Simulated assay, not measured.
Amino acid sequence: MDSLPAPGPVTLVQHPDEEQRQALRLDHQDTPYETDEREQRALARAAEAGRAAARWVRELAGRQGEHTHAQALLNAAEAVEAASGTAIVPGGQGVPGEEGGAPGTDHRQALLPGVLLGPVHHTQDVETLPALTGTERLDLVAACTLAAAMPSTTLGYYPLELEALTGALEAAVRSGRGILTGHRVRQR
């Protein structure tokens, strides 16, 4: 019987302490990152896809009879737009809460499926869900998840990742709107 090779030595990864992180941030600020043409196109496309997704989410919010559901969707629209635009730092690491960094806690929370799709409890026995079709629910969660991932892309290393996330975001919005390959699909 063949046996598995013995495991190799374990290497512990040390995370930088606060002082080292601050020094890294200062070094990063001293040398601005220069985007190349491909990265500029990827950033512009991501921002436009985010704006289109935010418009769609605002349309969904406008259909809600329940204020709480409408507000949750409006918050998500704002977070999608920020996460796919200003939060993507050229050459950055998408650090949460920093100016130009990944979305802060409020924006990240607005993108969570439970916040978007969860019920509003009126009484112990009465609750409502947002007025969305099954397809809209799925595509809304997909769009928010994709937008939330965009600030973690590091241009200069992963422009292809940003391009892929953007394409998927565009597809989720088309699907949510009921548009597939140029044909309008009737939703139930």
Rank of each mutant, 00 (worst) to 15 (best):
A164I: 05
A47W: 07
H183C: 09
A61T: 02
T35E: 10
A171P: 02
M1R: 14
D106V: 12
V57N: 01
T128Y: 05
Q124M: 12
V89W: 13
A87V: 00
V80M: 00
E81Y: 06
L24T: 11
E98C: 00
L24P: 00
T128Q: 04
R41K: 14
R108I: 00
P96F: 06
Q109Y: 06
A76I: 01
A87E: 08
R184P: 08
T133R: 10
I88F: 00
E19F: 11
S152V: 01
H69D: 08
L140Q: 05
D17Y: 04
L146K: 00
T154W: 03
G156S: 07
L162P: 01
V57S: 01
E66A: 09
A83N: 09
G8A: 11
Q22T: 12
E81K: 06
G178M: 07
T145P: 00
L73D: 03
G8C: 03
E59I: 04
A147N: 02
V173S: 05
H15L: 15
L180T: 15
R55E: 14
A143M: 05
V173D: 06
G8W: 06
E18G: 07
H121Y: 14
S175N: 12
Q64T: 08
M150F: 01
A54M: 04
D17L: 08
E19K: 13
G156M: 06
R51D: 12
P90Q: 08
G104P: 05
A6D: 14
Y33R: 05
H15G: 09
R184S: 13
V57G: 01
A23V: 08
L117A: 04
A164N: 10
T135P: 02
R25D: 12
G104K: 02
A142W: 04
P113N: 07
D139Q: 15
L74E: 15
M150V: 01
G167D: 10
V13Y: 11
P5D: 11
H69Q: 09
L138W: 09
S3L: 14
R184F: 09
E78M: 09
R184W: 14
E39L: 04
L112W: 06
A149Y: 02
P119M: 11
R188D: 15
P103E: 09
T11K: 12
A82P: 01
A87D: 10
I88K: 00
P5S: 10
R58M: 08
Q22M: 13
G50W: 07
L180R: 15
